[in-house]
Design a protein around this nucleic acid. Structure first.
Lengths: 194, 194
DNA sequence: GCCATAATGCGAGTAATCTTCAGTTTTTGG
DNA sequence: CCAAAAACTGAAGATTACTCGCATTATGGC
């Protein structure tokens, strides 16, 4: 069970949950997952451990909640890129460029939290599932654009692109941000219909 | 510190280390990382916890050791594919096909252990570093082939290909193994020089 | 074979930490 | 104003990673 055991109903408890998540994010970022105790999180949030466990059944649930927030934000951003393109004439190079830039920005923003969630922390099956669902939704949106561009096999290709770009951008930002250009060129070639 | 604090010098202790790793692999696979205690590992290995901690400074070190073994094996297999191609005339389609098949086979073999190491387990910086080093070496080998094939920008492209294929195959084996063909076609297009 | 030394093995105990729960305080709605 | 629900508390229980002083086994020179 990784979902809240109790829903906050009153304003007071909603603020408590907020404070707990904020404290968790800060401490996880600063000291890592393993080194952060639930008692310290409760302390920093200004509540007792008991309150924490009223809304989060265990430590992993805190991580999952943070991951959900982060994933939601990421998905929103990517979808905005697609929305912009839906009303314009197709342009593969610009689509790929904007997408890669968007993904890079998502990785670069709050890098500690990002790496915490996707590198360092134990990935529960639940977390992995959430991640793949978001991936799937983004791929579906991309698929529409690819079809418009006449790319071959848009359905599968879109999913492969989402997965590939994610992994490559992740690597590029650790290795050499200069690679970002190469990623764009690679995908323009891969998706260029002819 | 994640490296052994003491090297096994005698035959007896080498067997102990062997038994501990075997027990760890089995229990991690069966019950997951968090649910496996170091005491249970020692029990199953037929030694005491003290002995375990003589060769592994902490629980994470067990994981790192297993990951190293797995990574070494994987790298060997991929390198064998390249070695085969080095003495033949260039053939992009066959190269990509063989590579994707090889990576897929690596993922399909002992899938629980694989998912333990790369999904579920906490990725220590050390583990991430090992993984990226192996990636780098495989990319360098691929780069030679890409240059022979006249692919553009072989150095960077090879790294992107290794990262991309890894992520895509990983996804395909969870989603739909039928995607493997699509991965091959995608990369043939992306790497096809002209 | 003998023995000093090094290597290995042992496992109860310690400290840290997650999680619970019985009881208190605060809020809500009639 | 008050009963019931919601929220909060924090000491105590339970689990578990890891230590350390000591016992056992192997090694290599004589």
């Amino acid at each position: 069970m990784l979902t809240p055991r109790k829903r906050p109903r009153q304003q007071r408890s909603r603020e408590t949950v907020e404070a707990i998540l904020e404290a968790a994010a800060q401490l996880f970022q600063r000291h890592g997952y393993a080194a952060t105790t639930t008692n310290k999180i409760a302390d920093r949030a200004g509540v007792s451990v008991g309150s924490l466990y009223q809304y989060f059944p265990n430590k992993d649930a805190l991580l999952l909640a943070l991951a959900d927030l982060h994933l939601e934000a990421a998905e929103r951003e990517v979808m905005r890129v697609f929305a912009r393109f839906a009303e314009e004439p197709p342009d593969l190079t610009r689509l790929v460029t904007d997408l890669v830039e968007c993904v890079a920005a998502l990785h670069a923003d709050r890098p500690e939290l990002h790496r915490l969630l996707f590198d360092q922390a134990p990935r529960t099956p639940e977390l992995v599932a959430r991640f793949r669902e978001a991936e799937r939704r983004m791929a579906d949106a991309l698929s529409v654009e690819l079809a418009r561009l006449g790319a071959p096999d848009p359905g599968v290709t879109a999913l492969l692109a989402v997965q590939g770009v994610e992994a490559q951008v992740h690597g590029a930002l650790l290795d050499d941000p200069g690679h970002l250009d190469a990623i764009v060129r690679l995908w323009v070639r891969a998706l260029g219909g002819k």
